[in-house]
Simulated assay, not measured.
Amino acid sequence: MHTRRGALQGLAAGAAALVAGRAFAEDGVLTVFVGAASSMDFTARLIAEQYRVTLGRPALMVSKLGAGQRLALGEVKRAAPDGRNLVFATSGPFSVYPYIYNKLDYDPVADFTPIAGISFFDVAIATGPMTGVKDLKELIEWQRRQKEPVFGSAPGNGSLSHFVGISTNLATGLHMTHVAYKDSGVGIIDLASGRLPMMITGLQPMVEMHKAGRIKLLAVSGSVRSPLVPEVPTLREAGVDVSSSTYTGVFGPPKMAPELVAKLHDAVAPMLSNPVILEKFAQQGMTPWPATPQQLAALLADERKRFEALVKASGMPREDA
């Protein structure tokens, strides 16, 4: 009797939660949190605007910078599963952080609900006047001759830039020491002034200095060349068997109703076929990636396997989060 009554009460509570979730999704302000600057907060604004237009309700972007996006993730992890609070984030906190930090304050699978894939972007390898090389092959040989070869990356430890450097070490047998930059601008200045031989960071911030001849882009990390600099080869084309991109997506709190997830996915998806938005993506060095919740979850699962193996092979020590 008590067991049956408890089960019925549990079912009633679950049904009430689903109804409440659907009701809340129809009204109130929808907030899109973002934990990284530059092209990330730019895109988060586009996402919030898309939700405003499609759902016909107030929507805004809130920048919550710090702790490698973890502050923004925390806002959504603690939120009710009603669709009012979402986060736009890169794949790193879900696929990389579990293997580079000793203890995270979230579970990358259980604490979030994948909603939609949005974009992916590459990083690029560049050099400056310190080396005087003309291509990646020459840079690798230059690094081999150095007593203490180094490379810089931004935004530093655990980023795609960092892992492209680690992967390049493993693929070429180099032992370059990593110099972490929180700000890509500082690293690019060091590169252009001859204080740093090699920088790995997002492509877009380096394009103008490359075109001005102050630095030289040698390779992009993705599987295809970038339309921003079509003359620059991929790493594989340049002779280094490495290919890696950062993916971005929209995530909600845990235990969201499937109907609500589908609604939020369908509401944001049209922006990825909008020519105006696609042009803005291209200017930021991003490629649209219109993934379903299931495709986003599957990609992150594959990424976790890949980065677990990569961290283990590199011998990279774990850090405190």
Score class of each variant (00 low, 15 high):
residue 159 S to L: 10
residue 178 H to V: 01
residue 140 I to E: 00
residue 149 P to D: 12
residue 153 S to G: 15
residue 169 N to M: 02
residue 185 G to T: 08
residue 162 H to K: 03
residue 139 L to Y: 04
residue 190 D to G: 05
residue 160 L to K: 04
residue 155 P to Y: 01
residue 153 S to K: 11
residue 173 G to P: 02
residue 145 R to I: 01
residue 149 P to S: 12
residue 171 A to T: 06
residue 138 E to M: 06
residue 163 F to L: 03
residue 161 S to E: 01
residue 172 T to F: 01
residue 187 G to P: 06
residue 179 V to H: 11
residue 176 M to L: 13
residue 186 V to M: 09
residue 190 D to V: 02
residue 153 S to Q: 15
residue 158 G to V: 07
residue 183 D to R: 10
residue 141 E to I: 09
residue 141 E to N: 13
residue 162 H to Y: 14
residue 136 L to P: 00
residue 157 N to T: 15
residue 143 Q to W: 09
residue 188 I to S: 00
residue 147 K to T: 13
residue 163 F to M: 06
residue 151 F to S: 10
residue 144 R to Q: 13
residue 159 S to A: 14
residue 152 G to F: 10
residue 181 Y to D: 00
residue 167 S to M: 15
residue 152 G to A: 11
residue 162 H to S: 03
residue 182 K to A: 15
residue 141 E to M: 11
residue 173 G to I: 06
residue 178 H to E: 08
residue 185 G to W: 02
residue 167 S to I: 04
residue 144 R to A: 12
residue 175 H to I: 06
residue 151 F to G: 09
residue 186 V to P: 00
residue 139 L to G: 03
residue 165 G to E: 07
residue 161 S to T: 02
residue 183 D to P: 05
residue 185 G to F: 07
residue 138 E to S: 13
residue 184 S to R: 05
residue 163 F to H: 11
residue 177 T to L: 15
residue 141 E to Y: 05
residue 153 S to A: 14
residue 135 D to H: 02
residue 152 G to R: 00
residue 182 K to W: 10
residue 142 W to E: 06
residue 154 A to D: 05
residue 188 I to C: 03
residue 155 P to F: 00
residue 139 L to R: 01
residue 166 I to F: 11
residue 177 T to A: 14
residue 179 V to A: 08
residue 168 T to Q: 03
residue 142 W to I: 12
residue 176 M to F: 11
residue 172 T to R: 00
residue 174 L to M: 09
residue 187 G to T: 07
residue 171 A to C: 08
